[in-house]
Lab assay of single mutants.
Amino acid sequence: KITVTFNGEEKARRYYKKMQKHNLKVEIRVENNQWVVHVE
């Protein structure tokens, strides 16, 4: 499981979509004013 933190929504969403293309289970959320993407 990987957790990647971004300081911008745009970058986070781009990464999220990229990971989805690989058929990975991805989850995006905001934690402590940071955009966090969890990849299983």
Rank of each mutant, 00 (worst) to 15 (best):
V4Q: 04
N7F: 11
Q20Y: 05
T5G: 04
K11Y: 12
E9W: 12
T5K: 13
K25L: 09
N33A: 06
K11E: 15
K18Q: 14
E27A: 07
R13K: 11
E31T: 07
V4H: 08
L24P: 04
M19F: 03
E40K: 07
E10S: 09
L24C: 14
Y15R: 04
L24V: 12
L24I: 11
R13W: 10
A12M: 03
A12G: 02
Y16Q: 08
N7I: 08
E27N: 06
N23I: 05
G8N: 15
V26E: 00
Y15G: 02
E40M: 12
N33T: 04
R29V: 11
T3M: 07
E9C: 12
R13F: 08
I28G: 00
K25A: 07
F6G: 01
Y16H: 04
H38K: 10
N23W: 09
K11P: 14
V30P: 04
V26L: 04
A12F: 07
Q20F: 06
Y16G: 06
V26Q: 00
G8T: 15
R14F: 09
R14M: 09
Q20N: 05
H22G: 08
T3P: 02
E9D: 02
R29N: 07
K21R: 12
K1N: 11
E9K: 07
T5R: 14
G8D: 15
A12N: 01
H22Y: 09
E40A: 07
M19D: 02
E10R: 09
N7M: 09
V39I: 12
N33R: 04
K25H: 11
E10N: 09
V26N: 01
V30K: 14
V37P: 00
E27G: 03
E10P: 04
L24S: 05
E27K: 06
F6L: 01
Y16M: 14
V26D: 00
R14E: 15
Y15I: 02
H38I: 15
Q34R: 11
H22S: 09
K17L: 12
E40D: 09
H22N: 09
T3W: 04
E31N: 05
K18C: 15
I28N: 00
V37E: 01
R14L: 12
Q34G: 05
E40N: 10
I28T: 00
R13A: 03
I28L: 10
K17Q: 13
R13Q: 07
H38N: 10
T3R: 10
Q34A: 07
T3F: 06
V36S: 03
I28K: 00
R13Y: 10
F6I: 03
R14V: 08
V39N: 00
E40T: 13
H38T: 15
L24T: 05
T5C: 15
R14P: 01
K25E: 07
E10M: 10
V26T: 05
N23K: 09
E27T: 14
N23E: 05
G8S: 15
H22R: 14
Q20R: 11
N7P: 10
N33S: 06
K21Q: 13
K1P: 11
E40Q: 13
K21Y: 10
H22E: 08
V4D: 02
I28F: 02
R29H: 14
K21A: 12
E31L: 12
K18F: 15
E27Y: 07
R14I: 12
E10W: 09
T3D: 04
N32G: 14
Q20A: 09
V37G: 00
G8F: 10
Q34W: 06
I2K: 09
Y15C: 05
T5N: 05
I2R: 13
V39A: 03
W35P: 00
W35E: 00
E40L: 13
Y16R: 04
R13C: 13
I2S: 06
K17C: 15
E40I: 13
N7D: 15
E40V: 11
K18T: 09
V39C: 07
K25C: 11
N7K: 10
K18A: 14
A12T: 02
W35M: 02
K25N: 09
T3Q: 06
N7E: 13
E40S: 13
E31S: 08
N7V: 09
V36M: 05
K17I: 13
R29L: 11
N32V: 05
V30T: 06
N23Y: 12
K21T: 08
A12E: 02
I2E: 05
N33P: 01
K1V: 13
T3I: 12
K21P: 02
W35G: 00
N23S: 07
E10T: 09
H38E: 15
E27H: 08
W35H: 00
V26W: 01
R29Q: 08
V30D: 03
K21H: 10
V30Q: 15
N32I: 05
H38Y: 15
Y15H: 03
G8K: 14
K21W: 08
H38W: 07
K17R: 10
N33Q: 08
E27M: 07
V30S: 07
N23D: 07
V37N: 01
V37M: 01
K1A: 12
E27R: 05
A12Y: 09
H22P: 03
E27F: 06
T5Q: 06
K17F: 06
E9L: 10
V39E: 00
N23Q: 08
F6K: 01
V36F: 06
H22K: 14
N7T: 11
N7Y: 10
V36E: 04
K1S: 14
K18I: 12
K18M: 14
I28R: 00
R13V: 07
N33C: 11
V36I: 12
L24M: 10
N7W: 11
F6S: 01
K17T: 10
T3H: 06
W35L: 03
V30Y: 15
E27L: 06
Y15L: 04
